[in-house]
Design a protein around this nucleic acid. Sequence first.
RNA 1: GGGUGCUUAGCUCAGUUGGUUAGAGCACCUCGUUUACACCGAGGGUGUCGGGGGUUCGAGUCCCUCAGCGCCCACCA
Length: 789
Amino acid sequence: WKKKYGGLITTQIRRLGASCDWDRERFTLDEGLSRAVREAFVRLYEKGMIYRGPRLINWSPGLKTAVSDLEVEYSEEDATLYYFKYMIKEDDKDEARPRPQAGEQDEREAHPYIPVATIRPETILGDTAVAVHPEDERFKKFIGKTAIVPMLGREIPIIGDEYVSMEFGTGALKITPAHDPNDYTIAQKHNLPMISMLDKEAKVNENGGKYQGLDRFEARKQLWADMKEAGLVIKTEPYRTTIPRSQRGGEIVEPMISEQWFVKIESMANAGLDAVKDGRIKIVPERFEKTYFNWLDNIKDWCISRQLWWGHRIPVWYCPDGHMTVTREDPTQCGTCGSKDIHQDDDVLDTWFSSGLWPFSTLGWPDETPDLKYFYPTSYMETGYDILFFWVARMIMSGLEYTGEAPFHTVYLHGLIRDEHGRKMSKTYGNVIDPLTVMDELGTDALRFTLLVGATPGNDMNLSVKKVEANRNFANKVWNAGRFVINAIASLEGMQAQTETNTQWTLADSWIWARLQNLIRDVERQFQNFQYGQAGQQIYDFLWSDFADWYVEIAKNQMQNEESRMQTVKTLARVLDTTLRLLHPFTPFITEEVWGHLHSALRESPISNLSKDWPDALIVAKWPESRNPEGWEADKIADFELIQEIVRSIRNLRAEKNVSPSKKIAASFSAGAKTDLLKAQSTVIATLAGLDPSLITIHQSLAEKPADSAALVVGSVEIYLPLAGMVDLASEKTRLEKELKEAESHIQRLENLLNGDFAQKAPPALVQKEKDKLAGYKDTAEKIKAQLK
RNA sequence: GGGUGCUUAGCUCAGUUGGUUAGAGCACCUCGUUUACACCGAGGGUGUCGGGGGUUCGAGUCCCUCAGCGCCCACCA
């Protein structure tokens, strides 16, 4: 069974591209791990931290096992509240009481009772007291007297306890210590007997008189019917309450007294608290530390026994005299009396008992193996927040208890995946997204990228196929960008290798390289802060917008020219290489594939020295590092951004005027201080904006504004596009006026800002930045005004 | 009841220590047969950042408060 299902799980994990050392795969019932479990149990036992005792536990009648509090789910459901009479014993009646007359009040005097309400009438069979509030004027006179259990006739005391709320229900409470946690607590306080009235299948047992053998719900019906017959029933009413159900089976869980094994948890819990409080362990996101503290502060002893066939058996042997033998090796005789007639405890351990040992049981503990020395303590624990208590807290407690060290220094918690509207995925809704199907249809990389980029730590994520599709498109973009670069490398065939020194980098070359350096730094920073989604998003934007939409388009042009072809291809290859490295953890398959092709293309090319230090596979290639300081080449970036703005505004105008994209048009620039820059970049501008290179004029200033032209102002640069026949003077005026208004509103805003306290109190660099901006807008506004004239 | 998170474009969501004119994908509209990609390219519209108050030169971001939704924990029979 394990081979089949365990194999399925690891197949899925491999399919997702998890990069694990599969030789170290471990299963919780492996011999080594089992030995660790035995060692852990015996150690705790020898320290007196494990005990066996009666305890009210959550019993699952279907699974026939105890389930932990954490495995119980409460759901609000419709139920019935049953009101009935707890008759006071006749003998206790006041002798001086007057004879009953007609009417209820008198009758009640004659046959006094306490009204009680319950949701589970069958538990009446296990009642051992009736409790009222000691200050309750209605009932306090009954305290110390005796009540009669309906149908059974058993006599039970009436007690006073402040736990009882006078306002709720009837103000009186029946006490069933063996089947209710609160009643259990009250019973212990008052030394009440505990009567179990259900067996392991939740049928009434021998304590239930004539109801013995009935299922709990059947007994409820019958008992109530009989009580009705006997005149003990007051009424029933519908009631909404929370019902405890088993997380696994879904059936109603029954609190029951049972013999179980427990771990005294207090010292382990305190150690676990300290490790997070003093920073030895950090939980990401931080808010879960509070949740963790709250749980450990209120923790109860850990019930570690389970009545299942599946698991590590509890290593305790009993002899007929009841001696217990607890040893690391299976014993052949009783450790106390030597009896050979011994049998092992039937119960197994809670699965989390063994899972809690995982960080070191997998490494050979308790032996001081080389693996244990090298890998323990581990570093990061990555898991879903839903098992913070089940698993993480127990690994921390166990790690500290058995090894004296925190098992890891950081816990990173991810959220749960829901459907696109935030609902839990369930078969009933039909909203389940099967990851295998998604991977088949859209690719593993697309799914991985979606999961990584769409999620923020500790927050649930709504997954939709649409998102995966968008990222499939991205993977396609990576593929095609790769194809372009590889073809570009092939186009160098026959060229002589150049030395680096005579290379002239263009503005675009410098810009994309500087942007890449910024990207490397940003991604590094995002990773440090566990912002994996942000990191992925930035790489996505860089590759798609900066590299593919801008640089590749410019590169096409630069490659036309024999002289600049080689250095352009070099830049293409270098940028692609670095981007693929950054992207690899997100989309390992396609990046590995593209990189492999890139590698072999380079090897055969005149620029093969670019790849001379590369390993055989991207997965083991060095992670990129930026050696350039923050702000490096900021002026080049600013220059290029001006070119981008110019191109965008020309494209914008063309779209507005419906100029066919294939039509190459003329343009005049009045560029002022940017004249040299624009002259150098005129080919770039022409290519990207659809201008005719031979019809471009760039001057510092224009004596005369070209007639019949549309005018644009980008920063301090004026652009004139002679669109004879397409330019309507009136609409041009409107457009320019609109732009002027916009510039003026910026000027207004900035002037207000700079005249306020901002100038004095804000950091000077920031103030200067705003001042520069103001100057820019003023310049723009002046130019637009001139054009309007 | 205690705790915690969410509320940002039509939809699903980013927005890292408070600092430009708040972003993305999808959807929508216009244009495009440029030899990497139509799973594409160019352009376009949409926001009282849930309401109110406060701190600050400056708030989507910090504090208080109210409302709605979700989750965790505890469960008054």
